[in-house]
Design a protein around this nucleic acid. Structure first.
Length: 178
DNA sequence: ACGCCGATGTCCT
DNA sequence: GGACATCGGCGTT
């Protein structure tokens, strides 16, 4: 299910980008997931209905965004790790402090900064777009052959092959070498 | 190109 | 008190 998000478009107001890299986090099957065992005010959205945005704060300064994908109470969500910018690049450049365009959305915290996503978007409905954020489909097909790897930056359940990215995209945060 | 490290809030033990 | 789904800067190859 998670790789089906590759090729879709994440939209936040006038800014948007094509999803090129995702990771799945799988509730009580996955010791690396925020929803593994612990249910709290922070991760409550993860246990809600699919199609909502779960935004969390980490390392004292960064926001990261997930699309909730599981059944109610399941705690499954997909971390949006990188986008190929499509629209609103000037706003992204202002938000990101004039970095190279390639780096605007190349990483989960970078894409949140570029699109202006933070706590105010936690729980936003990605289907209706009521919170100004949604995931759209402009007809671009998900790649038939995404690269599958282990996830980035984990210590627990680090071997699960639950990261997918668009092969050859220069906007992927950490391509496998070779 | 690669690796270390500091920043800095929130959650969990 | 320690870990953390990170990033950017600075140092070394």
């Amino acid at each position: 299910m998670a790789p089906a998000l590759l090729g879709k478009v994440l939209v936040a107001g006038a800014r948007s980008g094509r999803i090129v890299e995702v990771e799945a986090y799988c509730g009580d099957l996955d010791p690396a997931a925020h929803s593994y065992r612990n249910r709290s005010a922070r991760n409550e959205v993860m246990f809600g209905p699919a199609g909502h945005l779960y935004v969390y704060f980490t390392y004292g300064m960064h926001w990261c965004a997930n699309a909730v994908c599981g059944e109610i109470d399941e705690g499954v969500a997909v971390l949006l790790r990188a986008l190929a910018p499509l629209t609103g690049l000037d706003a992204m450049r202002r938000a990101r402090g004039g970095v190279d365009d390639r780096d605007l959305c190349r990483g989960p915290a970078r894409l949140c900064q570029a699109l202006g996503l933070d706590r105010g978007h936690d729980g936003a409905d990605l289907v209706t777009g009521g919170g100004g954020v949604w995931i759209g489909d402009d007809g671009v097909r998900s790649p038939a052959d995404p690269v599958v790897t282990t996830r980035v930056g984990l210590s627990r359940n680090a071997d699960a092959p639950w990261r997918w990215y668009v092969s050859g995209s220069r906007f992927v945060s950490r391509p496998v070498r070779g």
